[in-house]
Write a protein that binds this DNA or RNA. Structure first.
Lengths: 185, 185
DNA sequence: GTCTATAATTTGATAGAC
DNA sequence: GTCTATCAAATTATAGAC
C-alpha cells in the first residue's frame, strides 16, 4: 500500500493554503519548509523551481475541480446549478479561502507564462461546464451567460474575503437562484 | 505656480502601474526608483515604508474615483449606469489595467491592515453609489443588486485580463444593459 | 529524500553628506 | 529632496554528504 499522503502532496497542500491567502509572491520555499517540517532545500527536490510548484499546483487544483464537476447530478437544471454554486460557497464558507485561480489571475503580470496558461485552463473548464448545462436544458438564449456567472462568483469570493463578510458571496448566488427559477417558471 | 507634477505624484503613478499589473508583493522601491529616475533611498523620503505608499495610493485612487462618480450625469437611470460602466470599461480597454483594488483584494492576507481597510472603503463607495442610483429611480426591489454589479465588474476585469480577452468585460456589461432596459420597459 | 552549507541576488530600510 | 553607502534579513537556488 502506497503512502496515503506523500510529501509532494503535503507540500502542495501547504502551497495552496499559502497562495490562497497571501498570493504567489508573498510566500517562500522556507515558509513551506516550516509548514511541512522539512528544510527548504528538500522542497527543491520535489519542485526544482517555484514556477514548477505553481504549475503543478494549479494542475492538481483543476483536476480536482474537474472531478467534482463530473460528479454533479444533472437530472435537472436547478440541481446542477446548486451543486455548482456549492463548490464556490463551500470553498469560502467552509474552507475559508478564496479560489486559487482568482488570486493568481490578479497577479497575472508577475507570473511565469506557463502558470498563467494553467490558470486560463481552469476558467475555461468552468465556462465550458456552464455552457454545456445551459445547452442541456435548452436555456442558452434566456439564461445568465457562463461568463457572467463565473466572473461574479470569482469576484464575489475575492471581495467577500476582503470585506470580511462571506455573506456577500451568498447573496450573489441567491440572485442567480432567483433568475434561473423565474426562467423555468 | 506649483509644480504641476510633483515627484510624490510621479512615484504614486509608477506604483499604481506596477501594482495593477503585478500586485503589491512583486515590485520593490528600486523598481519605482528606476521608473521615475531617482534612487530608492529618495523614495523613502516621500514614503517611509512600503505600507505608507500603499495606503496613500489607494487613498488617491479612491478620491479620484469619488470625483468621477460625482461628475456622473444622473438625469436618467440608463445614463447614470452607462457612465458607471464606462469607468470600468475604460480602465481595462483604454488604460489596459485591472482595478487597483481588485488586485489588492486578492492579496488581502499579505497586506498591512491599514491598507486592507482602505481597499474596503473603495468597495463601499461603489456599493453606496449604486445603491443610491437604484433608490433615486425607485428600482431597488427589481434592479440588479449593487453587490452583484460590483463583484461581476471586478471579477470580469480580472478574468478578462488573465484570459487575454478584454471583450469578456464588455459582454458582462452588456448583460446588465439588457437587464436594466427590460426593467424600465 | 532529506540534510548542511552556501552562493548570488534582492529587499526594505537607515545614516549622513550635499 | 536627492544622493552615496551600507546593513540586516530574506529569497531562489545549487553542491554534495548521508
Amino acid at each position: 500500500m502506497a503512502d496515503p499522503h506523500p510529501m509532494r502532496e503535503t507540500i502542495l497542500d501547504a502551497a495552496e493554503k499559502r497562495i490562497r491567502s497571501v498570493g504567489y509572491n508573498a510566500f517562500s520555499f522556507r515558509d513551506l519548509a516550516d509548514d511541512v517540517g522539512i528544510r527548504s532545500a528538500s522542497i527543491h527536490y520535489h519542485f526544482p523551481q517555484k514556477a514548477d510548484l505553481g504549475v503543478q499546483l494549479v494542475q492538481r487544483y483543476t483536476e480536482r475541480f474537474q472531478g467534482q464537476l463530473t460528479q454533479i447530478d444533472r437530472t435537472d437544471l436547478m440541481t446542477g446549478l446548486e451543486h455548482f454554486f456549492k463548490l464556490y460557497a463551500d470553498a469560502l464558507i467552509v474552507g475559508e479561502q478564496v479560489c486559487l485561480c482568482a488570486v493568481l489571475a490578479a497577479e497575472t503580470g508577475s507570473l511565469p507564462s506557463h502558470l498563467t496558461e494553467k490558470v486560463r485552463e481552469f476558467f475555461k473548464l468552468n465556462l465550458d461546464w456552464l455552457e454545456a448545462l445551459n445547452q442541456q436544458f435548452h436555456v442558452e438564449s434566456k439564461a445568465p451567460k457562463p461568463i457572467e456567472i463565473l466572473t461574479s462568483l470569482e469576484g464575489a469570493m475575492t471581495i467577500a474575503n476582503a470585506m470580511g463578510d462571506k455573506s456577500l458571496l451568498l447573496s450573489v448566488i441567491e440572485q442567480y437562484r432567483g433568475r434561473y427559477e423565474r426562467l423555468i417558471a
